[in-house]
Design a protein around this nucleic acid. Structure first.
Length: 137
DNA sequence: GCCAACGTTGGC
DNA sequence: GCCAACGTTGGC
């Protein structure tokens, strides 16, 4: 079991849209590191759903329901890009802001903060649990 | 709107 | 294969 954080601009694809869809394929990744992370995702892995730009906060938890397959939106593009299927697991009781995560020294090493541009980053179970704890605190 | 960080591209 | 130039992302 692994843990991840996936970023989306709410303008492009918001948590509410995700919940309405019940399931989506996570497309648009055009970065090799992020793609490699997608390829490592296993069925049942949990992902923190993070709103970038607008909001800048973790808003929910998604679950990987299908492992990687070719990105249907990238068939005409060079490179082998992939997507995974994810479903909403639960909404966080309250969003956890980036400022709050930055303020927690236990999260200072997490991928989101170390490499803020990466759209799919790995989390440790500890980091995942800390974020969830913040949302309940 | 600016800027920092980082990835990608292309000339050599 | 190196490195400068450029583009993109995302926080502020």
């Amino acid at each position: 079991m692994q843990y991840w954080l996936i970023k989306s601009e709410p303008f492009k694809y918001s948590w509410d849209q995700f919940v309405a869809d019940k399931r989506t394929f996570w497309d648009g990744v055009r970065n090799y590191q992020a793609r490699n992370n997608l390829m490592q995702m296993a069925k049942g892995d949990f992902c923190i759903f993070y709103h970038s730009n607008e909001g800048k906060e973790a808003v929910g938890i998604a679950k990987v329901v299908k492992t990687h397959y070719p990105d249907p939106t990238a068939v005409d593009e060079p490179g082998d890009w992939v997507v995974v299927d994810v479903s909403p697991e639960q909404k966080l009781k309250r969003p956890v802001s980036l400022a709050e995560m930055k303020a927690d020294p236990r999260l200072s090493q997490m991928g989101l903060i170390r490499q803020s541009r990466l759209s799919v980053v790995a989390l440790t179970k500890v980091e995942f649990d800390i974020i969830v704890a913040h949302s309940e605190g």
